[in-house]
Simulated scan of single mutants.
Amino acid sequence: MSIRLYIGNLPKEEIDRQELQAVFAAEGDAVTTKLIKDRKTGKCRGFGFLTVNNDEQADQIIEKYNGQLFKDTAIKLEKALPRTKGEENNEEQPTKVITHPTTNNSSPTPAKENNRREKSSKKSRRGGGVRENTPATATSDDAIRPDPRWANELEKLKQMLAAQTTS
């Protein structure tokens, strides 16, 4: 079973994979390196990976090469955490639960969904706010209905406003 090791603290300049492989050449052909580069610039992003055959060899390489100088910087070696496709975002950013204290029936809403609602509810800046195909007078069937979660609060506000205008 192959083990991946994280190589950190690499210089952020143009580095060849062969240069990094040369550092671990004493370990033989069983060791392979992968250098992570920026797609646009082609420069190293400051880290890479080393694949070895077994756990014992991984421990020996960490002891031997951790802190060794590579282009005037001490590299950092440690066992890489397993990564599975599709789960990177879920592990880094767990879904937070947000409750709305102003509502009577406060139900938890996942933060990601709430974020999408906020973004989609914003009006487009294109078009200058002109609505197309909207009649001058809207009937009650065509009127926009309030969000049911806020309907009670909206009704209270309407009543307070009506009371202020009459007095």
Rank of each mutant, 00 (worst) to 15 (best):
T166N: 14
A151S: 13
Q159R: 09
L20I: 11
I7Q: 07
N90M: 10
I61L: 09
T95A: 03
L20T: 02
S120V: 12
K71P: 03
S121A: 14
K96F: 07
R83A: 02
L161W: 08
V97F: 11
P110I: 00
N66R: 09
K76C: 01
S106F: 06
L157D: 05
N104Q: 13
N104I: 11
T166Q: 15
L157K: 15
V97L: 15
L35Y: 10
T73E: 07
S140H: 08
G128C: 00
A143Y: 07
K96H: 06
E155R: 00
R83D: 00
E19N: 13
T137I: 08
V52K: 10
G86M: 03
A22E: 15
L10H: 02
L5F: 07
T134K: 15
Q18W: 02
K40I: 07
D147P: 06
E13I: 08
N114L: 15
T99M: 12
E153L: 09
I15Y: 11
V23D: 04
N66C: 01
T51D: 15
G46R: 07
D59C: 01
K158W: 01
L35W: 03
V52Q: 01
L81R: 13
R39F: 04
R145W: 04
S167L: 08
K156C: 02
E14P: 03
A136N: 09
N9W: 09
P148N: 08
L5T: 08
A143C: 12
A26E: 11
R116F: 08
T41D: 03
R4N: 10
F49V: 06
K85V: 08
Y6W: 11
E78V: 12
T32R: 15
L20C: 08
E87L: 06
A26T: 13
